[in-house]
Design a protein around this nucleic acid. Sequence first.
DNA 1: TAAATGTCTATATTTTTTATCGTGTATAAA
DNA 2: TTTATACACGATAAAAAATATAGACATTTA
Lengths: 151, 151
Amino acid sequence: MITQKMKYALKALLVLADEAAQPAPEALTIEAIAKRSDSPKRFLEHILLELRNAQVVTSTRGRAGGYSLLMAPADVSISEMLRLIDGPIAPLACLSRRAYQRCDDCTDEATCRIRKVFAEVFWSYLLIIDSLTLADMLRSGTVADQVIGKA
Amino acid sequence: MITQKMKYALKALLVLADEAAQPAPEALTIEAIAKRSDSPKRFLEHILLELRNAQVVTSTRGRAGGYSLLMAPADVSISEMLRLIDGPIAPLACLSRRAYQRCDDCTDEATCRIRKVFAEVFWSYLLIIDSLTLADMLRSGTVADQVIGKA
DNA sequence: TAAATGTCTATATTTTTTATCGTGTATAAA
DNA sequence: TTTATACACGATAAAAAATATAGACATTTA
């Protein structure tokens, strides 16, 4: 299960992407994003900061300041967002490349049967989720799209 | 990431499956399973109880009592074990069939863009993980297998 | 009946998740 | 240059989940 925090992050990104798609996009305040995404403002603040540090969004201070999307939606990888907000996505730490951690009790990774079976699942899973971006979320956006999609 | 509890459960199942594959299989005490799987005995106790309630393993009390595998390894679904031990495997509660829960703030599931994108990932993921069983873990068991598998 | 073993409930500890608060800093307009 | 507005950052806290541990009890069989 993805965390509530991740849901807020995705909602915020959707709000920012929607704004960026407007004719005259403006920076949105945390408050505005919180309202539109129905997220707790003070919590969202930290999430946006993480997104900013990852250079997914950008912010300006002072009057008329706020946040806006920095990367193109097609370049915002869902799996990267998951890693950023929720941490490693591998089912086992010993299968994560970026957050690799050996199991305490592991005598031999090469012969670990748990590792082996989850490795198979994980590679297939990665193949799918690594291909998804914020743009994919936007595409399935409107009700009209939904109806067309079902036809 | 799967929990430590799930790791213990899988290790215990492997121990029991290995025992079941012996010429003269015997019931194994919690202590024996704990030792062989390097799991905390008192914690393992609860795990085995859950597996027993799910009729994956069986137990006998008293002298010479202990646990043994009840289901055939090929019938022990890894995804079912995940559901049993770690809870729902869906990325969102609103995508889980057995543990379905509507999101508090959700106005319309049919048009939720987060739900839609994770639904796609999830169905593909399910396809993979639902096909895996304890038997698959056993197959990739020995070092010899590993070497052959690589060839 | 005694020893071995599983059963069950309660409790405890640690970590993670989900926030909230206070204060500081930057910016732009008045 | 003051002031209003907004983000930045660190501290703290409550709630939930994960990871156990303990004690009393029930069952079996030698």
